[in-house]
Every structure is written in structure tokens, then in C-alpha cells.
Design a protein around this nucleic acid. Structure first.
Length: 483
RNA sequence: CGGGGCGUGGCGCAGCCGGUAGCGCGCUAGCUUUGGGAGCUAGAGGUCCCCAGUUCGAGUCUGGGCGCCCCGACCA
């Protein structure tokens, strides 16, 4: 929490829990480095990213893409060819000016994204329509010199995947754009248990150099939106600028149609803020680094019960070795309550409390992180039930997120209605929208800090009057405050 | 680039009118504890952001520098 001018934070003060949660999560997930704005990701945070990354990587490969790697440095002359693109990224490019002590003749950009270098290389690699489609993906880090940073959401260096494809036709590229947004949606919904809205970006939020951009917008627990994955149709903007041409089926030279799509470590910030509560993280079991934490409880005056607990712990550990990411908290000298709090803070989906009292009847207590639901189950056969319990926890988290989205959604028909909708709390407002820049400005001016997040893919206005100008509108806009 | 605020053990802070640095958490060791964030005891840990000045004496006063954070504009 942001300190100063507030009173000292002590264990007795009201702010202690908030401070403690934040301090511990920074110690466990990620923190800023001494270089302002850069992020260091700690093992627990990185494990969460790895599981997320692996899930997405599987989908990317399943849709026919291959991974490869492009260079970190991009010569200035290559970066500068697509006018709108370079204009959009120029303010946030980091430059390398020296190699060792020698000043370089041409500065090198640290990649903020790789369209330019990829286009440069593929110019020579593409000859014929038979070389298409090109379906490639890169996992890497990129740098954008941000003025203001927020951990995970906007850091100067971040990790992501960027997919890049070239296609014979505009329509085929358009299908690709939708297909990959669909992967992001599946990742968000099925793996990360987040409720999202998919749609097309307005002109002002379109990727620099793209024909159009589609995104998924996730809802955070405070009602704010977070753009969590984007997919761009680049048309022939780059292939023209970079002079990429193939001989077509009709024996004429054609510029291929291109797409790019990316999803970054920002998604980890989304998971934290979508599901977390006052006691810390709530992680979806499918990506949680630790899915089940076992807390053994023994008494020093009950060696017999202690031995039984030890045996039970070893049994469950062995029985789940290949099926569940289960860990036992064997730390000595720490009381159970502290262990509960410790793992709740880290978002572990299930806690198995294994104490002599329950065990005397052959039982254990299982507690679910997301809602505290508690049940007493027989130790016997527990290993077989855990996967199902994890699935239930996953579904519960997802349902809670969907319920929040439904609860915070509003239907709005004019600017007054928009103001009323935002009067008490941040909401996801849906309204007919003509998609003209001047109307977007009116929307932004009507309510502090709101933006048109996207034009919903799943709904049409069918001529209903635009909320800002009253003209017949095509789109339903999602209007929200965003991170 | 505008508007605020702050630099004191690992973290969060106190330190008035100048007198040689303190509190809580954390950490280390020991004992006692263990079904919801333990207790006691004993320890370790600080060029008080930097430089210059005033002074017998500067964390404190003066001047200059550096760094960081928050709120805006910009962005995944």
C-alpha cells in the first residue's frame, strides 16, 4: 500500500492486513527491480505464468502454428517503414546506441514488438502463394518505455507470445484473427476462470498499423475492465510497406494479408485482480502452482496420533504424486492457523487438514479457498476424489466471475443513462453505438475515466439509436473503466 | 511533460526548540506451544540519499544535487 502520510502500519492497525497481503505477494509473485519500471518475477509467480503459457502454447500448436525466435535488436531503418506503426511505437522504444564503448552507426531498437523484423526477414523468404500461409509464434520478452508502470499490468519489460501470420486472402487472415482471439478466450475462460467480453476495438484503440483489432476484456473484482489479449488484422499495410510480395495463383504479384496477436504476463495481473480477495490470491486450480496444500496437525502430548498423521500424510503424498500438484506443509514450530493463512494468501485452491482428531474416525477436512466451503471426507480414497474437487473449485471460481459480470452489466440507451449507471460503482455498460470518433469523445466526456472497450462481437444494435448522437447504430459498445 | 509527496536497519515508520539514533514487523538461537495469523528469553543488523556550508557538535538548520513514489496525459 502506498505509505507515507498514513499512520504507521503495525500489526494492530487496520491497514496491516492490506499491507501484509501486498508485501507477501510482492515477495512471492513479482516486484520492481532497481531499474524503475522493470519487473522481476519470482518463482511462484513464474510458475503461474509457466502453466498459463503452456496451456496457450498447446492451443497455438494445435491450430497449426510453430514456434521460432527473432532477434531482440531491430535496426532503426527497419523499424521505420510502416508510418503509422512507427509513429505509434516511437514514444516507447528503448534504443541501443553503443556496442561496448563504440558508438553505433545506426541505433538499434530493443523490440517493442516484432512485426518489423519479421517482415524484413520474410520479404526474402516468401516467393509463391504456395509458401502461404505462414503460421509462426514467438515467446519472448519485449520492452516498452512506459511513463507509468503497474506491476504485471504495465511494466517496461514484459514477457509474452506474439503470433505472426501471412495469408493469401483477406478473408483467410480474418479467420485467423478470430481463431486466435478464440484461443485467448478459451484460455481466459476455461483455464483462468475469468468472465470476458470479446469484440472489436474502436479506431482510437486499434493497434498502430492494423486494419482492425479485436480483444477480450475481462472483468476485475472491482468492476474495472482489463484488456487481456489482442488479435490484429494487419491487412496489407505491412506487406506493402516492407515490399513483401508472392506470385499468386493467377501469376501476378500479390501482397500477402497479415495478422498478429499477442498475450502477455499482464494476464497474470488479470488473474490476481479478477479472483483475489482480502485474504490474498484465489488461483484457478488448472494453473495453480500448488493445487492442494496438506496441513498436518499433531500434538506433542499425543505421539500415537502423531504417528498416524505422519503415515496418512505420506500415503496421500505418494498416492497423488502423478495426478495432483500437492504439497505438505511440514514446517515445524508454526501453528496451523498461520499455515492456513499462509497458503490462503498464495491462493492454493484446496486445503486438506490432516489432524489426529479427524483421523481417529478415518477422516480429513477439506477446505476450498474460493468460498471457504468445508467438508469432512474419508481419508480412504481421497486421492481419487481430489481431481474432482479441483474441478469443482475451478467451476466455482468461474461461476463467481460470470456472476460478477452479470451483476455489473447494465443496458444503457443514452448518455444520461450512462451517467446513472456509473453513479455508484464501476459497471460494464452496453449501449448502441455508431462508432464515430466524435461520439466516442462524447462518451468519454460523459463519465469520468470511462472508455469504449470494444464493439461486442456477440451483439448487434440493429439500428437502435446511438447513445451519443441518436443516429441509427450498428454496434453494441461495451463501455467501462479500465486498467 | 504538468500537479503533489517522500528519502532514517530487510519492510513499515518515529525522531520537538541541534547533543552522537529508536519503535513495530521480519530475521537468528533456545525453551514452551500446535484444530485459525503463538509466548517468553537472548541476539544480529544503520556511511540517517549525496555534496558543500553554519556550529564546539547536524538525522535535525541553510544551499545545491541525485533518487523514488502517488495523481494526470500515453499505452498490452
Amino acid at each position: 500500500m502506498s505509505k507515507r502520510d498514513e499512520k504507521a502500519i503495525t500489526p494492530k492497525s487496520e491497514d496491516f492486513d492490506r499491507w501484509y497481503v501486498e508485501t507477501v505477494l510482492r515477495a512471492e509473485l513479482a516486484d520492481y527491480t532497481p531499474v524503475g519500471g522493470c519487473m522481476v518475477v519470482r518463482p511462484y509467480g513464474w510458475a503461474l505464468w509457466e502453466r498459463t503459457r503452456d496451456a496457450l502454447d498447446g492451443m497455438i500448436k494445435a491450430t497449426g502454428h510453430e514456434n521460432m525466435q527473432f532477434p531482440l535488436f531491430i535496426p532503426e531503418s527497419l523499424l521505420a517503414k510502416e508510418a503509422e506503426h512507427v509513429e505509434g511505437f516511437a514514444p516507447e522504444v528503448a534504443w541501443v546506441t553503443h556496442g561496448g564503448s563504440k558508438e553505433l552507426e545506426e541505433r538499434l531498437a530493443v523490440r517493442p514488438t516484432s512485426e518489423t523484423i519479421i517482415c524484413t526477414l520474410y520479404r526474402d523468404w516468401l516467393q509463391s502463394w504456395r509458401d502461404l500461409p505462414v503460421l509462426i509464434n514467438q515467446w519472448c520478452n519485449v520492452v516498452r518505455w512506459e511513463k507509468r508502470t503497474r506491476l504485471f499490468l504495465r511494466t517496461m519489460e514484459f514477457w509474452w507470445q506474439e503470433g505472426h501470420t501471412f495469408h493469401e486472402t483477406h478473408a483467410e487472415a480474418a479467420e485467423e484473427v478470430e481463431r486466435m482471439l478464440g484461443c485467448y478466450r478459451a484460455l481466459a475462460e476455461d483455464w483462468l476462470a475469468m468472465a470476458v467480453v470479446a469484440g472489436r476495438k474502436t479506431e482510437s484503440e486499434r493497434f498502430a498499423g492494423a486494419e482492425y483489432t479485436v480483444s477480450i476484456e475481462a472483468i476485475m473484482s472491482d468492476g474495472l475492465a482489463l484488456q487481456s489479449g489482442t488479435s490484429h488484422h494487419l491487412g496489407q499495410n505491412f506487406t506493402r510497406a516492407y515490399d513483401i510480395a508472392v506470385t499468386g495463383r493467377d501469376n501476378t504479384l500479390q501482397h500477402p494479408h497479415q495478422t498478429s496477436w499477442g498475450l502477455s504476463t499482464r494476464i497474470i495481473g488479470a488473474v490476481i485482480m479478477a479472483h483475489g480477495d482480502d485474504r490474498g490470491l484465489v488461483l484457478p486450480p488448472r494453473v495453480a502452482p500448488v493445487q492442494v496444500i496438506v496441513v498436518p496437525i499433531t500434538r506433542s502430548n499425543d505421539p500415537e496420533g502423531g504417528a498416524a498423521v505422519d503415515a496418512a500424510v505420506e500415503h496421500i503424498e505418494r498416492a497423488t504424486a502423478d495426478t495432483v500438484r500437492l504439497r505438505v506443509d511440514r514446517r515445524d514450530g508454526i501453528r496451523p492457523g498461520e499455515k492456513y493463512a499462509h497458503w490462503e494468501l498464495r491462493g492454493v485452491p484446496l486445503r486438506v487438514v490432516l489432524g489426529a482428531k479427524d483421523l481417529a474416525d478415518g477422516n480429513v477436512t477439506v477446505v476450498r479457498r474460493v468460498d471457504g466451503a468445508q467438508q469432512v471426507l474419508p481419508l480412504d480414497g481421497l486421492e481419487a476424489r481430489l481431481p474432482g474437487l479441483l474441478d469443482e473449485a475451478q467451476a466455482t471460481i468461474r461461476a463467481r466471475s460470470e456472476a460478477l459480470l452479470a451483476e455489473r452489466s447494465r443496458e444503457v440507451s443514452d448518455l444520461d443513462g450512462l451517467r446513472q449507471a456509473f453513479a455508484t460503482e464501476p459497471v460494464f455498460a452496453n449501449a448502441p453505438f455508431c462508432n464515430r470518433p466524435e461520439c466516442e469523445d462524447r462518451v468519454k466526456a460523459a463519465v469520468h475515466a470511462v472508455t469504449v472497450r470494444c464493439l461486442r462481437a456477440d451483439r448487434r444494435a440493429e439500428g437502435a439509436p446511438c447513445l451519443a448522437c441518436g443516429q441509427p447504430a450498428e454496434h453494441i459498445a461495451l463501455i467501462a473503466r479500465a486498467y
